[in-house]
Design a binder for these strands. Sequence first.
DNA 1: TGGGCGATTCGCT
DNA 2: GCGAATCGCCCAC
Length: 190
Amino acid sequence: MPKTPRLHGPFFARSVHEVAPELIGATLLVDGVGGTIVEVEAYHHTDPAAHSFIGPTQRNAVMFGSPGFAYVYRSYGIHWCLNFVCEPEGSASAVLIRAIEPAEGVAAMRRRRGLSDIRALCSGPGKVGQALAVGPGHNGLALDRAPFELRARDAAPAIVTGPRIGISKAVELPWRYGVAGSAFLSRPFR
DNA sequence: TGGGCGATTCGCT
DNA sequence: GCGAATCGCCCAC
């Protein structure tokens, strides 16, 4: 089996609209636990739904830094969500990792999630954070070094797009990407 | 300094 | 399908 290249800086130093669809099918591991990315959303700095739209703040500071780093934020006071920072430094764009098809460390993911159904382990951004044990300590870490391991896909799967989920601004923009027909999506594509 | 609001999830109806 | 849980962030007062 061919060893796929590890994704690093130059891969992310492009528009989120190029990077996001190319992340579909890539492998994401955190401390050896994870699997295949099957769903992401793009957040561009000119996009009213992006955390960076209002300008630099303490929370979104990492988005204004270098591409190829992790931006982790707390959602609804409960969940931790993982993003990959994209584009040249200062552009403040990122890709939200919304769903993963579990492959490595499934036992650990089941334990952390308190569930056995493999389809429910990583089928949502908050679930991914919990299953991969992503937290505030990961905010600002480089994606090409431990604890992250991020590898390019061997071949591009069939990709579908649609409107993003759970936002109230720019709801019409079709910047959600996923594997067509996957059983591991947060929600089906219409 | 306080109130409203999330890039969500889960359980109950 | 609906609403509670839960709290940090952000802006208006």
